[in-house]
């Protein structure tokens, strides 16, 4: 006899968790859906949306501590899910999804997009590093501009509309 298809959906603070569960129910009508939630999440809000609930020590995304993340990961792995869903596409959640042991992993984002998450977290890690390097370089440049090139207050002041229209090319 084949085992029931198991889906684990991890709550992160955001408006669309019930919507994600609803979507999963529509996509997988016969599956057993488990909502993985922090202790303070009201269970009555999940009525009819999830078949089972796993209460974590803390929300893995909100709590920054690695110890917490590993505890949550252990709980997720114990669920032996076939399909694992997170609510945001962040590096932390990608790592958690990669470690979940589920055969398929997706991010159901707030705008309704469903993003497949790779089992191998290395590309995501590299992308995050590249973004961070780029961000730091851009930030350093902007900081230099902001602190070393002050605004000359006379620029543009007092111009009439006709002059502005004639001078459009200067932008």
């Amino acid at each position: 006899m084949s085992r029931t298809f198991r889906i684990g959906a991890l709550y992160s603070r955001g408006p669309h968790f019930p919507r994600v569960l609803q979507k999963l129910r529509e996509q997988h009508p016969g599956a057993q859906i488990t909502a993985i939630i922090p202790p303070e999440y009201p269970r009555d809000a999940l009525e009819g949306l999830a078949d089972a609930v796993v209460v974590t020590g803390q929300n893995a995304q909100m709590g920054g501590h690695w110890k917490t993340a590993f505890a949550v990961l252990a709980q997720i792995r114990a669920g032996k899910y076939d399909h694992f869903v997170v609510m945001f596409d962040s590096l932390k959640l990608r790592l958690l999804a990669a470690g979940s042991g589920a055969a398929s992993r997706f991010c159901h984002s707030v705008d309704g997009r469903i993003i497949p998450l790779s089992r191998n977290p290395l590309p995501a890690l590299l992308r995050a590093c590249a973004r961070s390097v780029r961000g730091h370089i851009v930030y350093a440049y902007i900081r230099w501009v902001v602190y070393h090139r002050p605004v000359e207050k006379s620029q543009g002041a007092g111009e009439k509309k006709e002059n502005v229209v004639k001078g459009i090319g200067r932008i």
Binding site: R131, G135, I142, Q155, G156, A157, E159
Partner: peptide
């Protein structure tokens, strides 16, 4: 900016070069 993860406000700030001194004159001209 450092993490290069941002929403509309910062996307506009970067796209418009709103940090540049010339931007102030553009706002006044606009």
């Amino acid at each position: 900016i450092r993490q290069w993860r941002f929403r509309t406000w910062t996307a506009d700030y970067l796209a418009a070069r709103a940090y540049a001194p010339e931007y102030h004159a553009q706002v006044l001209a606009a």
